[in-house]
Amino acid sequence: MGAGYLKWLDTRNRDSQIAGAESVQVARDSTVALLSYTPADVDKQLIEARDRLTGEFRKSYTSLTNDVVIPGAKQQQITAVATVPAASSVSASVDHAVALVFVNQTTTVGSGAPTDLASTVRVTLDKVDGRWLISQFDPV
């Protein structure tokens, strides 16, 4: 019985490590997708980014992008480019994970000078139909 428990524990730990690595990569890629756009393709880019989200966060992101970001990007010719220099797993199980993501974002309005912003985001992900999707995106 003891050997069975140790085997179960080992498998669970390995599954959590795999989930942690997968979810951190998805958090990195999705953060870049959520925060990067050009005025010419903002509709397409942010609609594609929505496919990386789930639950209430998807609803609030959709509302924000439709009502504020997309019209503003087109009207003011805003370009945003996000990069993720570092990210780390906070916790992970086979269907739920939290990652800490460090973000650098450069925003340019029209022909103005670019502005840089560095921030940290706590990204919560849930595995839905075999895919890691962001369910919360909270600045730290």
Results as ranks from 00 to 15, higher is better:
50 R>P: 00
137 F>P: 02
116 D>G: 13
138 D>C: 00
129 D>A: 14
17 Q>A: 14
90 V>N: 10
136 Q>N: 12
26 V>M: 10
126 D>P: 02
12 R>M: 09
123 V>N: 05
12 R>G: 11
113 A>N: 14
126 D>N: 14
101 V>T: 03
115 T>S: 11
49 A>G: 07
137 F>M: 02
127 K>V: 08
17 Q>K: 12
38 T>K: 11
92 A>R: 02
19 A>C: 02
117 L>I: 07
120 T>C: 13
50 R>W: 06
25 Q>H: 10
139 P>Y: 03
87 A>N: 08
30 S>L: 11
102 F>H: 14
98 V>E: 15
59 K>D: 11
75 Q>P: 01
138 D>A: 14
77 Q>F: 01
53 L>H: 05
2 G>I: 12
126 D>H: 13
64 L>T: 10
90 V>W: 09
50 R>D: 04
78 I>T: 03
73 A>C: 10
122 R>F: 02
35 L>Y: 00
65 T>V: 14
94 V>H: 07
8 W>Q: 15
131 R>V: 05
52 R>D: 07
37 Y>T: 00
117 L>M: 11
92 A>Y: 03
119 S>A: 12
126 D>K: 13
93 S>R: 02
77 Q>T: 00
82 A>H: 08
88 S>E: 14
38 T>I: 04
54 T>C: 10
21 A>D: 11
24 V>Q: 04
20 G>Y: 09
67 D>K: 13
53 L>E: 05
8 W>M: 15
132 W>R: 01
139 P>I: 06
1 M>I: 13
73 A>Y: 00
111 S>V: 10
80 A>L: 00
101 V>Q: 04
135 S>A: 10
95 D>G: 04
128 V>K: 09
66 N>S: 10
22 E>L: 08
75 Q>E: 12
27 A>Q: 02
135 S>L: 00
134 I>M: 13
115 T>E: 08
130 G>W: 06
17 Q>S: 08
120 T>W: 04
95 D>P: 01
42 V>K: 01
20 G>T: 03
104 N>C: 07
68 V>T: 12
114 P>V: 00
54 T>E: 12
105 Q>R: 15
124 T>D: 14
38 T>F: 05
57 F>C: 02
67 D>H: 07
53 L>T: 04
58 R>K: 12
27 A>K: 05
41 D>F: 12
74 K>Y: 08
93 S>C: 00
128 V>M: 02
90 V>G: 08
30 S>Q: 10
101 V>D: 02
73 A>T: 00
11 T>D: 15
117 L>V: 12
132 W>H: 05
47 I>V: 14
23 S>T: 07
50 R>G: 02
119 S>C: 04
54 T>A: 15
61 Y>Q: 01
101 V>M: 01
94 V>F: 13
60 S>P: 05
46 L>V: 03
30 S>W: 08
9 L>F: 11
57 F>E: 06
118 A>I: 07
43 D>R: 08
101 V>W: 03
132 W>A: 03
119 S>K: 07
51 D>R: 13
87 A>D: 10
76 Q>D: 09
104 N>Y: 09
16 S>F: 04
97 A>L: 03
115 T>I: 01
89 S>E: 12
116 D>L: 12
134 I>E: 07
90 V>C: 06
76 Q>G: 01
93 S>V: 00
64 L>R: 11
58 R>F: 03
36 S>Y: 05
37 Y>M: 02
